[in-house]
């Protein structure tokens, strides 16, 4: 197609562009990412019905309600799930729910700690005091996937005899007056896959009819539509976009919203590059034919 010697300057340029060294593209991606992270503007975001359902459910929690918040991801998926985790935790803590965190993933508990530390400090600045063991608790990691979920249905205290820092759960104020899913007002899982949202629906939600919402990565979210339609899930968030939708509804634009700017910019970049590449190739072909 483009075998013949380039003759004009234009042709030379187009030939070069068609076979552009990919490192120029890499640089463009890197530069756009940094620039759009620094710029201070927000694109309008349209919350999906699933995200709206999620937001409404979480914001119907009353002070003192027990919320089981399962963090089923590790640092490797933090990029997508951490913004969801943070804005949901912020809402729960501000509303004064009793937040009970646990994890089915071995590398989950440090992430839980990180979340509590950040949100508790934020609330302290606003003058709202939240106390470990009273308002929130990190129960740590439990192996056994589905079996672990099923045993939570029987008893939280027996499944987690101690919390993450080694204190016996039976003596913690937050654990008094309830012990299984019958008394849990809301079940939230933020997870990257198996075990995660689907396992919680099967083992906990459908058995104990506990209200449930979930946050997952963009790759997993298509799997949750059937559960949303059948009413097992009151709502869910998919990836960074889901977190951005949540931030929009909570009116606290943060990292996810900013992330969506970057996403938009890079998507536009890729689309432009593809279109220009095609245009260049097409005009080269036209020139050659002439």
């Amino acid at each position: 197609m483009i075998n013949q010697e380039p003759t004009s300057r234009m042709q030379k340029f187009l030939t070069m562009f068609v076979a552009l060294d990919r490192r120029w593209i890499f640089s463009a991606v890197a530069i756009l990412t940094v620039i759009f992270m620094m710029l201070d503007f927000n694109l309008p975001i349209q919350p999906s019905p699933q995200a709206e359902g999620m937001y409404k459910t979480i914001n119907s929690v009353q002070p003192g309600d027990v919320v089981h918040f399962s963090i089923d991801y590790g640092p490797s998926s933090a990029a997508e799930l951490w913004p969801q985790h943070l804005c949901i935790l912020r809402d729960l803590m501000r509303r004064g729910a009793r937040v009970v965190c646990s994890s089915l993933w071995a590398d989950g508990p440090p992430t839980i700690e990180k979340g509590f530390n950040i949100v508790v400090a934020e609330l302290a600045e606003e003058g709202i005091k939240r106390e470990r063991g009273v308002d929130y608790v990190n129960l740590g990691f439990k192996a056994g996937d589905r079996v672990a979920i099923a045993s939570l249905g029987a008893s939280f205290k027996r499944t987690f005899p101690t919390d993450y820092s080694g204190r016996p759960t039976a003596s913690l104020p937050i654990m008094q007056g309830w012990d299984n899913y019958n008394d849990v007002k809301l079940l939230i899982t933020i997870g990257v896959g198996d075990p995660g949202a689907v396992e919680y629906v099967q083992q906990a939600q459908s058995r104990y009819r506990v209200t449930m919402v979930a946050g997952v990565t963009a790759v997993i979210s298509p799997q949750l539509y059937p559960y949303y339609q059948s009413g097992n899930l009151q709502g869910f968030l998919g990836g960074l976009a889901g977190a951005a939708e949540y931030e929009k509804m909570a009116n606290t634009p943060g990292r996810a919203t900013k992330g969506m700017n970057v996403q938009s910019a890079i998507h536009v970049l890729i689309v432009l590059l593809v279109l220009l590449g095609n245009l260049a190739q097409f005009s080269l072909r036209m020139m050659a034919r002439r």
Partner: peptide, 13 residues
């Protein structure tokens, strides 16, 4: 980075 470079190279009509 690779989704961008592969798209540029492969998505030609």
């Amino acid at each position: 980075f690779y989704v961008a470079s592969a798209a540029f190279r492969a998505f030609r009509a």
